[in-house]
Design a protein around this nucleic acid. Structure first.
Lengths: 180, 180, 180, 180
DNA sequence: CATGAATGAGTGTTCATTCAT
DNA sequence: CATGAATGAACACTCATTCAT
């Protein structure tokens, strides 16, 4: 038993929600895995949905506004560096939950939406810095940024369906080449 | 009451699964909406999951191997025409179900995976035909095809999260430009 | 498919009732095993219980009043010969049903009761013939007969609980020795 | 309302299982008779079969290894005393359940099997003590013991079929006479 | 006569939530 | 604050039986 009761409850819920989904996970099972009495779950989280909301609130962080590591004249490398990691601080389990339970509660969808927006914002900003001469062609940059964001989210989520992987670096080069 | 009982059950399930999700939809509600007695649902579909499987089997069709409408020398237009419609014959509700319930049953994930594969295959084939000089090697075509597929699936599914729309035609031009 | 529909239904029911018990056997399963449509079961047997009653009526026969193969002066051999077989014409499955479902319907209990009575009657009659001199001691003969009957029914039914077998011939000798 | 909830549930189940049988008794009826909410039955007994198992575990006791009240030289009296009561601490209802539901669950059959074994063991031991001269070989004692056990179990169970009663004392005398 | 769709009350079971202690 | 017994509505699913064709 590691950590206090509340932490153990969230640990257990994170694991179970990622594995079987929110709806299919009984609170009693969360309590058992957390090794706390059933009543204590409801002491900390009056409704079951509050467990999910707390997980998303406390264990996912969309990093907004951070500096982009852009190199002027090297859009491909700049995008590649962007692809090194989503601006999302969350465990693999929490990432799974974020995509899987987007329909379950408004707050989850909102968080995922923020991730989406931030991704596009960063890609756009990175391209603006990497291609200083292209400032005028805002529409093309926007499309390129959205495309890159779509590929990254696809990688995070849909690619598990067929096991089809996309190499983000190659996409970065493709987009960079198109904008040059 | 339109159609026979089995059809009405599937109609009701399609509507309810798309709206509230499979898990959150009681079979009793399906029966009520379909205006059939509860037992009849289980007469046709012994398990609840069989309703979902039947919906996916009978009401979604991934069009495989159809001819691609490619114009040599016009990769942008060729991709744009590809984007006019996913190779997926399914109602909006069924499309929603396909993406939402991919974790619920193997057969749903499989169908969605087939759609993914087919999308990539088509995009690759279209680009091969549109760029007869095989300009750019196979690997670049593959990346371009996967990128385009990712964007189309993103449009179908993830874009609802932020309401962020991507114009497929613009992406088509972006990719075409990159390969030229 | 052997035999007509009604026969096949009874065949299937005999097998299933013996295996899982009457209550745990759905009529639909009987129909499936018999390879007849479900409605046909109720055509021949309006109530489910009628299948059981028909089985007991038609497929068990307590042989009443048959001659006893008695040898005067040899009560042990006479009882042994009695033990060669219960006065019951029935398949092993029907025997199982007879004991197992005695509580299910009056007619089954009655049939089993008739078997019990007939067993005792035979044993008493056999002993009377085998021990002509003992006619006067009716009470002792009665006890001996009932004891032998009890052992035979125990063999047919309860012995399966511990796998404990009793050798009827040895019991026959025991009883014969006691009466001599 | 007497006793705590769990006890009342077992009380109700004991009564109902003895009356109508395990299969024919709905859990809802158990709850109603016990005057507890239906859900509480499953709080204490996750599966319906657990109620039966608990009854057998907690409310039947096969008394093993107790001293046998044997009088050397008086095998008839010794057996008679054995017949005063089965080595089974259980209410009449539980006795009924034990015999009736032997096919329902392994644990019931096992308990009944233990009773059977213990009965034979006692009868054999009693006869060994009552006949110190070891008159008659071991095999004969074994047969006599098994026969007596069969009669006692017959009395407990099968005799209800025809209402045919056997006087255990008379059987004791019969067997004793045979061994002398 | 034969059929299988139709029926609906009932079954075991689940589970979020409450609450007395 | 902590606990686990208590609650009851809801759930998926069963099944004997009916009946129109």
């Amino acid at each position: 038993m590691i950590g206090d009761a509340r932490t153990r409850i969230l640990d257990a819920a994170e694991q179970l929600f990622a594995g079987g989904g929110y709806e299919a996970t009984p609170t009693a099972l969360i309590a058992r895995l957390a090794e706390v009495p059933k009543g204590l779950v409801f002491h900390y989280f009056p409704r079951k949905i509050d467990v999910l909301v707390a997980l998303v609130d406390e264990r996912t962080l969309v990093e907004e506004g951070r500096e982009v590591d852009a190199v002027p004249g090297d859009p491909a490398g700049t995008l590649s560096r962007l692809a090194r990691g989503l601006p999302l601080r969350a465990s693999p389990a929490m990432r799974r939950i974020l995509f899987r339970e987007a329909d379950t509660h408004r707050s989850v969808k909102e968080r995922l939406g923020r991730l989406n927006s931030e991704l596009i914002r960063r890609a756009r900003f990175a391209l603006e810095l990497a291609l200083p001469g292209a400032r005028g062609d805002a529409a093309r940059l926007e499309v390129a940024a959205a495309t890159f964001a779509a590929v990254l989210l696809y990688q995070e989520n849909l690619c598990q369906l067929t096991g089809h992987q996309i190499d983000p670096d190659a996409v970065a080069r493709l987009i960079a080449h198109s904008l040059s």
